[in-house]
Write a protein that binds this DNA or RNA. Structure first.
Lengths: 128, 128
DNA sequence: ACACTACTTAGACATTCATCGAATCAGAGA
DNA sequence: TCTCTGATTCGATGAATGTCTAAGTAGTGT
């Protein structure tokens, strides 16, 4: 259970990432691409994107699986599967408290992805 | 050819997006999720992520297919396929000039994705 | 101990996807 | 017109993915 993919974000990178987005500064290396693509792939599904959003917006910053399952027209195992994918990607984390299992967002990873796409793109918008 | 998926970005949204990222403000609607997820899915592949980066970093902001193909250990049809996926997602656009075909980034779409993930995530980093 | 609820795992199935080789299309130049 | 190069399309194939049902695990309460 606890044996999870390493967070892929050190807090230093979060601050640093904001200043220079690799995507447009210099070509992404093969290794970085192979490391980052799975994160985008994980949120590249409508159900998982909504799950992420539901968790992020939920009061307290965390949500119980039963809340999440209720928001979809899918079976519990399917929701569980998608949560597992998000967790293995390092985007969310979870903890059992009594009967319920709670999930919350790992905001650092999200911020890193945003920084990768963002600032430079804004610059290009003006340039072109 | 020119019949492409609509850009999915109005310039207003680019500016507006910077102030409030939907992902953490309120739950993403089903329709929005189904519209946005394919974009993340498109960049959720190492080859396509590198293609995007190579194009963005290339001098002049555009790159010829032959330049791109040379950077990979894949056949030309495969690269062509990935470029098509990126183009259909609205992330890049292309034009033929003589013998060569050039691709460039649609920065507005990238910026929108960044805004969706970004600012709120930064806020949560501090909060937690 | 038993039953009940919440969630996850296992296995099956249909669909989608990444990749390739072969064929085709589009221009440039002899 | 013929040929050469650059790029895309087509068809096939093995791998990955999303979903389900059925079964299992974990905790609560009687």
């Amino acid at each position: 259970m606890s044996k999870q993919v390493l967070p892929l974000v050190d807090d230093a990178a979060v601050d640093a990432g904001a200043c220079c987005a690799p995507l447009v500064c210099e070509p992404l290396g093969v290794a970085e691409a192979e490391e980052l693509a799975p994160l985008f792939k994980a949120i590249g599904d409508p159900v998982r994107l909504r799950l992420l959003s539901l968790i992020a917006c939920h009061e307290g910053g965390e949500a119980c699986v039963c809340d999440l399952t209720a928001a979809f027209d899918l079976t519990a195992p399917t929701i569980s599967h998608h949560l597992k994918v998000l967790k293995q990607a390092g985007l969310i984390d979870s903890e059992r408290r009594g009967t319920w299992v709670y999930y919350w967002i790992n905001p650092g990873v999200l911020a890193r992805l945003s920084a990768l796409l963002g600032p430079q793109a804004q610059a290009l918008v003006g340039a072109r």
